[in-house]
Design a protein around this nucleic acid. Structure first.
Length: 256
DNA sequence: GGCCAGGGCAAAG
DNA sequence: CTTTGCCATGGC
């Protein structure tokens, strides 16, 4: 499948910190998600996505290729966000699997991105089928001891407890999709190891709730240093989460 | 070796 | 309702 969309930059998406299983591979990327694997390679005028033909709609949805990101622009009066946008343009908000997003962002707490990737790879390698992200049942059946062996540390009981809730239907991630933003956040926060920040990440990166605005240490620093008078969230109602990704990307680049 | 990382949680103020 | 200390581990 040839992809010619504007505002689509796999390199930036791979380093955006919303997914942890895009890996550079001979000039392109190997993407693992949705229980599948695909390859993205640059070609003149766009990118080529190699995958089974019947999977194409799924990957279009995953990469949010049918949205126009020209509609998600920073306010011209917001100088800092405009510069962040110049750097981050091409990042899209993925539609990841809710369970994978939930577990990976529980793992993410107090870890840097390379460490998160390592943990997720161990989890997939030990408990997943064919290297895919493990099912709720597979994690639920695992011992806390063994999970700790995957560098999860104090997060091991969180991951285990949350997987058990999902596996036993106490937390129905599919049914959660019908909830409004506030109810969804509350539902996710019932899981152990899930607070407001992790819930917002799952809302944004899996449920595509573009108003979700996760505040981690980087964003917190940015807001305090660059917006001492406050960040006007109302200005970006409907897509504040996209602006958050631009700010996060710029903060991690560290050149603003 | 010290500091930091896409935080959550329970206890205390 | 807002602070505070603790929680494991790896990268730099």
């Amino acid at each position: 499948m040839f992809i010619r969309q504007k505002d689509f930059d796999p390199e930036k998406i791979a380093h955006s910190g919303q997914c942890f299983r895009m890996a550079a591979e001979d000039g392109g990327f190997r993407v693992r998600a949705l229980g599948r694997c695909a390859r993205l390679s640059p070609c003149p005028g766009g990118y080529m996505l190699d995958c089974p033909g019947e999977d194409e709609p799924l990957w279009r949805r995953y990469f949010d290729l049918d949205s126009d990101y020209g509609a998600f622009l920073p306010d011209p009066g917001d100088e800092y966000l405009c510069r962040a946008y110049d750097l981050a343009r091409g990042v899209r908000i993925l539609r990841q699997d809710p369970f994978e997003a939930l577990i990976t962002f529980i793992i993410s707490q107090r870890k840097n991105i390379p460490a998160i990737r390592m943990c997720v790879e161990k989890l997939c390698g030990e408990l997943g089928e064919e290297g895919n992200f493990p099912s709720p049942g597979a994690i639920a059946a695992c011992s806390e001891e063994r999970l700790r062996g995957m560098s999860l540390g104090y997060r091991a009981p969180y991951v285990l407890g949350t997987a058990r809730m999902v596996n036993e239907g106490e937390l129905d991630l599919e049914a959660c999709g019908a909830l409004d933003d506030q109810a969804l956040e509350q539902a996710l926060c019932r899981a152990p190891g899930v607070g407001v920040k992790v819930a917002k990440c799952v809302m944004l990166f899996a449920y595509h709730r573009l108003d979700a605005f996760p505040v981690d240490v980087w964003i917190d620093r940015t807001l305090k240093e660059k917006y001492p008078q406050g960040f006007d969230m109302e200005r970006y109602r409907g897509y504040a989460g996209v602006m958050q990704q631009y700010l996060f990307f710029a903060a991690k680049k560290g050149c603003l």
